[in-house]
């Protein structure tokens, strides 16, 4: 549905996006991650036909953003971190205005339908300037959905929303995935990305440095293991050190001590570790694989990129 092909974008000679390529398929949520200034917003704006690429091309639903930017815009719904509404307009008029811009056949009907969908039907006649932050973000989402686009570009949609509202928004985004929308989610909220993204694209200094399924990205790198035991942590570390395992202290629970170590070969290392600890008189309670969070994986990817 979205194909980004070797896209480069420069602003006054500064490269904001460099030879970026990735795709988003129908019924898929792809999280676009990266530090500030990595080119995430530029990428989503190019995909949405708001900005033209300096080089390369983007195909949305088979339409080139270079050849037919209006065709691309007609197929994309765009939500930014700031709702950016016309404060003097009432909700119904606002949504109907955008419905007309997108050539929707029954603008007023569509506006009412969307307001109902997002729980805003009781404030249709109210001016947008009087809306709360959460309500304004809902309006921005309704505006993006007004033409029922096959592609949704969400740029920090949950910024400044309270946790309950953010949860509601997440559920809504997931429901859109079920309706075969291709969704590109630009976010700094790695917890949100971990929960709903099928795949992840990591940008750093305008370049794509990692693409993969969320589960693959989380599983990348050395698997790490957590040991919980009764006894002295220093004695346990010494015992592991003697067989070449460098363990680090970890947060302990239930009065037990804990150590964390990473290994490429858990079959060999874990058995050896257990034997070494038992030989040293340490009472091992559990040895469990640690699941890396997307945040840990992302930080590791960035650290690697910086090196």
């Amino acid at each position: 549905m979205i194909e980004v092909r070797n896209v480069t974008r420069r602003f006054d000679g500064v490269v904001a996006l460099a030879d970026a390529s990735f795709e988003v398929r129908p019924g898929e949520i792809v999280a676009l991650l990266g530090p500030n200034g990595a080119g995430k917003t530029t990428a989503s704006r190019i995909i949405g036909g708001i900005l033209a690429p300096s080089e390369g091309d983007v195909l949305v639903d088979g339409i080139s953003v270079r050849v037919d930017p209006n065709g691309v815009r007609a197929r994309c719904g765009f939500v930014t971190d700031q709702p950016s509404l016309y404060d003097r307009m009432p909700l119904l008029e606002y949504l109907a205005f955008f419905a007309r811009l997108y050539d929707v056949s029954s603008p007023d009907h569509r506006a009412v339908e969307l307001a109902k969908l997002l729980g805003l039907d009781d404030v249709l006649a109210k001016r947008l300037g009087a809306f709360s932050r959460g309500m304004r973000q809902k309006v921005a989402i309704a505006r993006a959905l007004v033409h029922d686009p096959p592609v949704l570009l969400l740029d920090e949609p949950a910024t400044a929303l309270d946790p309950e509202m953010a949860q509601t928004l997440r559920s809504f985004i997931v429901s859109l995935r079920a309706r075969h929308r291709a969704i590109l989610l630009t976010t700094h909220d790695l917890d949100e990305a971990q929960r709903i993204a099928d795949r992840v694209v990591v940008l750093y200094k305008g370049r794509v440095i990692r693409i993969g399924a969320t589960s693959e990205i989380r599983a990348g790198g050395k698997p790490s293991y957590l040991l919980a035991f009764a006894g002295e942590a220093s004695a346990a570390r010494d015992a592991l050190s003697r067989i070449g395992i460098e363990a680090q202290p970890a947060a302990s629970e239930d009065g037990l001590a804990a150590l964390r170590f990473a290994t490429d070969d858990p079959r060999r290392t874990n058995g050896a570790a257990l034997r070494a600890l038992l030989d040293a008189g340490i009472e091992v309670v559990t040895l469990a694989a640690e699941e890396r969070s997307l945040e840990d994986a992302y930080l590791a990817i960035l650290a690697e990129a910086r090196q």
């Binding site: 949405g48 930014t80 950016s84 404060d87 955008f98 811009l101 505006r143």
Partner: peptide, 14 residues
């Protein structure tokens, strides 16, 4: 200033 140009630019208008 209000950022309201972005939704206009995202719409299929010349």
């Amino acid at each position: 200033e209000n950022g309201t140009l972005v939704p206009l630019l995202a719409a299929p208008i010349r």
